[in-house]
Design a binder for these strands. Structure first.
Length: 1142
RNA sequence: GCCCGGGUGGCGGAAUUGGUAGACGCAGCAGACUCAAAAUCUGCCAUUCGCAAGGAUGUGCUGGUUCGAUUCCAGUCCCGGGCACCA
């Protein structure tokens, strides 16, 4: 009886299916274990050998845990909404539902062939209305929620509305509109549309107009990670910025928790780092710079904006300083003396409260006493919290004084100060209550975090204030110029008449920058001077304000303070435009490049001179806050997640617009089923195909949202649905969710590091906040399978151009005319052998040079031949055929002659590159062929044997024979070709038991730590040794069969059956390790002389140092090396080694 | 540029805590069985000197710590991945 894997595997797969061997219940007394694979998108290409790598790993682990007595949830499903199916529909006219169904069928077949232990009764498909009903439902929960920053959790919109009615929004800054400020009365006065508009700015799922990556060719908006080098990742189509109404998830509100959550989960450091980078938290400061007065400011601020300043008003109110400076220096001086006197003459109540404030150190906040603010001296002030404390003495009760108090309060409040007033009596009689009120005021953030654009009144002499964000406030004295993003709103108003034309020219240039030019990666330094100057608030120095595209409008404040001696880009800019550079770091700056160190000693830096930069950062921020021109600020790089696609094949939004306002549909209206369409072309104005369905759009007294949700919608919560897939009342039963809880082991590729995983983590946190589940991290442990790599091949694409001017080696977009529709394919590295000048026969125009376009991927690797070590070529014939397919007119390319099969053929050399195996790269290998030829068990073990799961490795089928041989060898321990089963019941010897238990130990440890490749080796060693021992004993072989079940389930089940006739090895108990079989009495000690092994001596493991030394010194080899001398030292590590030092 | 990984025979890889580098498999070489092939089995297989015994070198490179380093430290080069005019 031979090892007939085809028959065996088919038999058991059928048997397992019929006996529902892999179905698990939610009711079990066993401990639970949840093993999950990242479910696949069922593409038309089917599985390739890279996919199963993770699936096999998780399958082994799931089976292992089952044998160890766990109730293991190991489900599988399909991420079946998505772009490729729709793209395919557009090309072929087949409905995505049909092609998706077919693809799933094929995937399922392929998965079944490999013998995975999925509980298919729990399968989910994101495109199934029964599933996406709940995706829509969760979306509505997000729509109905906002993030309470105080509580650091999501809450219901109704709670927010209640707060608004009571206290306005003062305690809850609006994340969508930081300037928004209203009180309860105002809220009540807003009409419905305005209220909804405001609520939208708070919702966790919200719609807004935003710049999105619009891809005309795909007719869709792409996520940032779907855009590579300015073109769409799929298809390489151009992408432009476009303002559109979009849905977003306010994931930025969760930035900090997503960051903190990483501490609790077991992800690889690389993965955590990637997520941290993506979130991009940075700490620094916002600093406000006044724009200096200029005689030629253009355009002039309107008289209203300038306020009464022009009238030379003497009113205190109109002479207050800009920004948050609590005072001008002159005013400060004038009031300071008065303040000093006040301090001396303080009232009893003031002294009492001051002492209490100082003693209690209220929440660690620093209070100042009699600190002048804008010509007025409050009793106490906490600058950090912008909180002013006033104790009203006798004279405050006079009518005139009260009037003044009111106007002053108004001014202070307008400028984000809060005033809390106490009476003398309150302080002297009930100090505790006063302090409690103070504590409360401090912990509230009312009036905080509203660093908004300055009101006209705040403006400096030039009328404008520029706010910059910097992570290096310590370099404030090294600021030599400012740079605004070209899109910055102040650009127009600060530009001088003189510079106007230059700035406009530059803005024109920025707009005209084509995608293609950005692609070319010509990083030249560009910019324009606005003519305006900003004033360094610390030393009054005037610094020029420039605009440049290297400053991004979307990050920070869209403006930077440039420190050329410390930042390389600033340095390059300064050099390019001849801006003098101030050195604040002494020797650390060599005059030739910037030095971004934080460890240099500061020079030329006023009050921080002599300090280490690192230490100066906090000091400068404190000072900024103290004088009110800036504040500590944390920034995140992460943006809110775009959540709508102008596509058909996705979840429709359960949203209806009435009068331009978005309303949620009722839960009873769910699911909003995706209607049938005949055509998949885009709707009007770039809307999705659903916009074409006039009938469908009308619903519930309004019009439906016609966008659909993106791919990550369904995958953000699928792990929950597996727990309770048939539930029609809830997305998941709370009891089931509590039982299964977090995914204990999640396996998938790194490519989902920042997309799927972050969104999924956010949804989980939101569902947790809203009380639907009991955990806020979805995945406890994440293992990233490495990629299976394969060769891809590229040719160079060259276009011919006619140069308008010069002999530039590098030329910009405007300087050449390309030869339309003629593309040269060029041998790798043969760029300069192009046939130029080239004459266009139609126009007679001469094209003088070639311009490298890109490396062009050859999607079909089958015609590529290896002509030498690392040298790959494709024949001219095949390349030509390929190019014709692409509809590009072929012009010509450089040829290298190669002799193949004694015939000279013209070949083009192609550039090889090792890449991840994927359909889009045209380098896939199909697993079906291997399974057919060697069987699923061989395939499983071979993929594991390739190397560590997490490492990427090239696909190579050469080694597969060895694994297959191993399984046959295993088979022959049980079955003789002629005699049939040969398992006997003889008692096992110590040697055999030792082999077995050694293997148990190794397999258990290796499986537990996902070291599957070494586990496979251990099986090989074990089988080799049992073979040498001619062991066919059930006592040994039965445990061995259980051990190998997770790795090779089919052969294990067959062998188990040969020994038992009934039952299944799937439910066996993992053999228990008995250390007693591993104990040795002696060891063949390696003996080194000066660290180099010279001989081995067998010594009892009981032997102690003196005894060992004696034995070692008596040894011939050791004697020879000692050469008559005595040893300096003998190192003896028990059970390990001996080292003799001479 | 920044942040992570990783460099070990002809190849994939092993060495779990600083203790015999190269387990296991592939490929290769020699042999057994066979008319022959397949399958199977046996032996050899880092480089180098040597008939051998034995020696020298050896985990990208340069140093260091240690009785002893693939393992720890410093520097450096290369490869892969991620991020990026991010202030």
């Amino acid at each position: 009886m031979e090892y007939n894997f085809r028959e065996i595997e088919k038999k058991w797969q059928q048997q397992w299916r019929e006996s529902h061997a892999y179905e698990v219940t939610n009711d079990s007394t066993k401990p639970k274990f949840y093993v999950l694979d990242m479910f696949p998108y069922p593409s038309g290409a089917g599985l390739h050998v890279g996919h199963p790598l993770g699936y096999i790993s998780s399958d082994i682990y799931a089976r292992f845990k089952r044998l160890k007595g766990y109730n293991v949830l190991h489900p599988m499903g399909f991420d079946s909404f998505g772009l490729p199916a729709e793209q395919y529909a557009i090309e072929t006219g087949q409905h995505p539902a049909v092609t998706t169904e077919n693809n799933i069928k094929r995937y399922r077949e392929q998965l079944d062939n490999i013998g995975f232990c999925y509980d298919w009764s729990r399968e989910v498909r994101t495109s199934d209305p029964k599933y996406y009903k709940w995706t829509q439902w969760i979306f509505l929960q997000l729509f109905d929620s906002w993030y309470n920053r105080k509580m650091q959790k999501a809450e219901r919109i109704a709670q927010l509305v209640a707060r608004f009615r009571q206290e306005g929004n003062a305690n809850h800054e609006c994340p969508g509109d930081k300037k928004l400020n209203f009180i309860a009365e105002e809220w009540k006065g807003f009409d419905e549309a305005r209220q909804q508009e405001i609520l939208m700015d708070y919702r966790l799922a919200f719609s807004a107009f935003g710049e999105v990556n619009w891809c005309e060719a795909l007719g869709t908006v792409l996520a940032n990670d779907e855009v590579v080098n300015g073109v769409s990742e799929r298809g390489g189509h151009p992408v432009v910025k476009k303002k559109m109404r979009q849905w977003y998830l306010r994931i930025t509100e969760y930035a900090d928790r997503l960051l903190q959550g990483l501490e609790q989960v077991d992800f690889s450091d690389a993965m955590k780092e990637m997520q941290r980078n993506w979130i991009g938290k940075s700490q620094g400061a916002e600093i406000r710079f006044k724009v200096a007065a200029g005689n030629d400011l253009t355009p002039n601020p309107s008289p209203k904006e300038r306020g009464t300043k022009e009238e030379n008003s003497t009113d205190v109110k109109d002479n207050i300083p800009p920004g948050y400076m609590t005072n001008t220096f002159e005013q400060w001086k004038a009031t300071a003396d008065f303040a000093k006197a006040n301090r001396k003459n303080s009232t009893e109540a003031e002294s009492l409260l001051w002492q209490e404030i100082r003693n209690r150190k209220l929440q660690g906040y620093k209070f100042r006493r009699q600190h002048p603010v804008a010509g007025y001296i409050p009793n106490f002030i906490c600058i950090e919290k912008r909180l002013i404390v006033e104790i009203d003495g006798g004279y405050h009760s006079e009518e005139e004084q009260q009037k003044f108090d009111v106007s002053r309060t108004k001014w202070l409040e307008e400028h984000d100060y809060r005033i809390i007033r106490f009476t003398n009596d309150e302080v002297t009689n009930n100090i505790e209550e006063v302090l409690q009120k103070l504590e409360k005021a401090l912990s509230s953030n009312e009036g905080l975090g509203k660093l908004t654009a300055p009101s006209p009144l705040e403006r400096g002499q030039g009328g404008e204030v520029i706010t910059v964000y910097t992570t290096r406030p310590d370099t404030i004295f090294g600021v030599d110029f400012m740079v605004l993003a070209p899109e910055h709103e102040l650009v127009a108003s600060i530009t001088t008449a003189e510079q106007k034309s230059e700035v406009e020219k530059y803005l024109e240039y920025v707009k005209s920058r084509s995608e293609r030019e950005r692609l070319a990666e010509v990083k030249s330094i560009t910019g324009a001077f606005t003519g305006a100057y900003a004033i360094n608030p610390f030393n009054g120095r005037e610094i020029p304000i420039w605009i440049s595209e290297y400053v991004l409008a979307g990050y920070g404040t869209g403006a930077i303070m440039a420190v050329p001696c410390g930042d390389q880009r600033d340095y390059a800019f300064a050099k390019h435009f001849n801006i003098p550079i101030t050195n604040i770091i002494g020797d650390a700056y060599n005059g030739e490049e910037a030095n971004a160190t934080k460890d240099a000693i500061l020079q030329n830096s006023d009050f921080i001179n002599g300090m280490v930069m690192r230490d100066a950062i906090d000091l400068v921020i404190d000072k900024l806050e103290e004088i009110g021109i800036g504040k500590r600020q944390i920034n995140y790089r992460m943006r809110d997640a775009g959540f709508s696609r102008q596509r058909y094949w996705g979840e429709p939004f359960p949203i209806v617009y009435k009068g331009g306002v978005a309303y949620a549909l009722e839960e009873t209206d769910l699911p909003v089923e995706l209607p049938y369409v005949d055509t998949y072309s885009a709707g009007p104005e770039g809307e999705g195909p659903l916009a074409n369905l006039a009938d469908w759009i009308i619903a519930s007294g309004g019009t439906r949202e016609t966008n659909t949700m993106p791919g990550y919608a369904g995958s953000s919560w699928y792990f929950l649905r597996y727990m309770d897939p048939y539930n029609e009342r809830e997305f998941v039963d709370r009891k089931a969710a509590d039982y299964w809880g977090q995914v204990d082991l999640y396996i998938g590729g790194t490519e989902h590091a920042v997309g799927h995983l972050l969104y999924s983590r956010m949804w989980t946190k939101a569902l947790y906040d809203l009380g639907y589940i009991s955990f806020d991290e979805p995945y406890k442990k994440l293992v990233n399978q490495g990629m299976i790599t394969a060769f891809s091949f590229f040719v160079e694409r060259i276009e011919l151009v006619d140069l308008l001017s010069g002999n530039a080696d590098f030329f910009s977009e405007s300087e050449y005319v390309p030869f339309e529709n003629k593309i040269f394919f060029c041998s790798f590295g043969e760029f300069d052998r192009l046939p130029v000048p080239y004459e266009d026969k139609q126009t007679g125009k001469l094209y003088e040079r070639g311009r490298f376009l890109n490396y062009h991927r050859l999607k079909d690797v089958s015609h590529i031949v290896e002509t030498g070590e690392g040298d790959y070529r494709i024949s001219k014939k095949n390349l030509e055929a390929y190019i014709k397919d692409k509809g590009v007119e072929f012009v010509g390319f450089e040829i290298t002659d190669v002799i193949v099969d004694e015939a000279v053929e013209e070949y083009v050399s192609v550039r090889p590159e090792i890449e991840k195996m994927s359909k889009s790269k045209g380098n896939v290998q199909n697993p079906d062929f291997i399974v057919e030829k060697y069987g699923a068990d061989t395939f499983r073990m071979y993929e594991m044997f390739l190397g560590p799961v997490e490492q990427s490795k090239p696909w190579d089928t050469k080694g597969i024979e060895g694994v297959h041989r191993f399984l046959r060898k295993l088979w022959r321990l049980f079955v003789d070709e002629v005699k049939g089963a040969i398992v006997n019941h003889d008692p096992a010897t110590d040697a055999e038991l030792k082999v077995l238990h050694k293997t148990i130990k190794k397999i258990e440890e290796d499986t537990e730590r996902f070291s599957f490749n070494t586990a496979v080796s251990a099986f090989m060693v074990c089988v080799n040794e049992l073979n040498d021992l001619k062991c066919h004993k059930k006592e040994i072989l039965e445990p061995l069969v259980i051990l190998i079940t997770p790795y090779a389930p089919h052969i294990a089940e067959e062998l188990w059956n040969i020994m038992h006739n009934d039952g299944s090895v799937l439910d066996a108990v993992f053999p228990k390790l008995d250390e007693k079989y591993l104990i040795e009495s002696a060891k063949e000690y390696p003996v080194s002389i000066n660290g180099k092994v010279r001989t081995n001596i067998n010594i009892s493991l009981d032997a102690a140092q003196p005894e060992v030394e004696q034995i070692v010194l008596a040894n011939d080899v050791v004697q020879k090396w000692l050469n008559g001398q005595g040893p300096k030292k003998i190192i003896f590590v028990k059970g390990r080694m001996i080292n003799v030092v001479i």
